[in-house]
């Protein structure tokens, strides 16, 4: 095998490795949005809900429609019969007032569940490990329809 061919082979294998590496970066940053998780430090807050509906780990946490964090853990508290939801919030939003309220909403009519935070007016902020007091559970469609039907009957 002559020298030129060896150089060609080594060159193209190098290009192959490089292109594959760039593709992996593309998948990581552009497709899976890994940058929001890796690029910044997060802090944790918690909230208790009566019913979380279809909320899952990794569901987004939004303020004013902007994703500021993700659900990191969901536990059931056997004493209070509540769901305890832990959220990882980006450190740059460490300015949340302590009377912030959380509600579980649905994107679109049938879309994914997410947590919406509504900042309050308090002077003190919700630090790391803080707990949100005011929460509103997920809207369960079946319950809603049930209520609507029973109300309709009472009206008769």
């Amino acid at each position: 095998m002559n020298h030129q061919r060896i150089i060609w082979i080594e060159f193209t294998v190098g290009v192959f490795m490089l292109v594959a590496f760039l593709s992996a970066i593309f998948l990581a940053l552009r497709v899976s949005g890994l940058v929001t998780m890796v690029g910044s430090e997060t802090y944790q807050i918690r909230a208790r809900f009566d019913n979380i509906g279809g909320l899952k780990v990794r569901s987004p946490v939004n303020i004013a429609g902007v994703t500021v964090g993700r659900v990191s853990d969901i536990q059931f508290d056997a004493k209070t019969f509540d769901a305890v939801v832990s959220m990882e919030i980006d450190n740059q939003y460490k300015i949340l007032p302590s009377d912030t309220s959380a509600s579980i909403l649905t994107s679109g009519l049938l879309g994914e569940k997410y947590i919406n935070l509504e900042p309050g007016a308090s002077e003190t902020t919700l630090g790391s490990g803080g707990e949100i007091e005011a929460t509103q559970s997920a809207l369960i469609l079946e319950n809603l329809i049930g209520k609507f039907l029973t109300r309709g009957k009472e009206g008769d």
Partner: peptide, 15 residues
């Protein structure tokens, strides 16, 4: 397009 993609695809879980 990209925003929904990024919130739906997880690096560890999917990629």
């Amino acid at each position: 397009f990209w925003g929904n993609m990024q919130s739906a695809v997880d690096w560890h879980e999917d990629v």
